[in-house]
């Protein structure tokens, strides 16, 4: 199966690889997936007082599409408000990266990671966790 140019670009030059201090109050961390399933994503956001995402980092264990999905997600997150970030849909990632059907689960995982990071931030800052729609996988 051939990868799209965008997947190859993100895979070869992944954006925002790294680690934020998960103990900081303004950092939200989402860790989703499982090693047994062949993909684990960790996505982190740093949020300022105006609920704007000022930084985003990721690390991913998985195939090229999983790495590209999380790399693209961090790019999209930076500069967005939390509410805007919640509106990111996995199908937007699928479209942008031209993922084939067999790789759609990679984008679902990235969406889960975003929501999970936001919830971590919310809980840390005294807000209640959002009810997340059950994973589609």
């Amino acid at each position: 199966m051939a990868y799209s140019e965008k997947v190859i670009d993100h895979y070869t030059n992944p954006r925002n690889v790294g680690t934020l201090n998960k103990d900081n109050k303004n950092v939200g961390t989402g860790l989703v997936g499982a090693p047994e399933c062949g993909d684990v994503m960790r996505l982190q956001i740093e949020v300022d007082d105006n609920n704007m995402i000022t930084d985003a980092k990721f690390k991913t264990f998985g195939c090229g599409s999983a790495i590209a999905s999380s790399s693209l997600a961090t790019e999209w997150l930076k500069g967005k408000s939390i509410d805007e970030a919640l509106a990111i849909d996995n199908m937007d990632l699928v479209e942008e990266l031209a993922l084939p059907p067999v790789k759609i689960h990679c984008s679902v995982l990235a969406e889960d990671a975003i929501k999970s990071a936001i919830n971590d931030y919310r809980v840390k800052n005294g807000m209640e966790a959002l009810e997340l729609p059950k994973s589609h996988h």
Partner: peptide
């Protein structure tokens, strides 16, 4: 491995088998 959260955790001495992974 530079991209892998599991490698980072392993290097920090975290026992991965003790983490409750969200099976999907």
């Amino acid at each position: 491995r530079d991209l892998s959260p599991l490698w980072e955790m392993f290097k920090e001495g975290i026992d991965l088998s003790k983490i409750e992974w969200a099976e999907h």
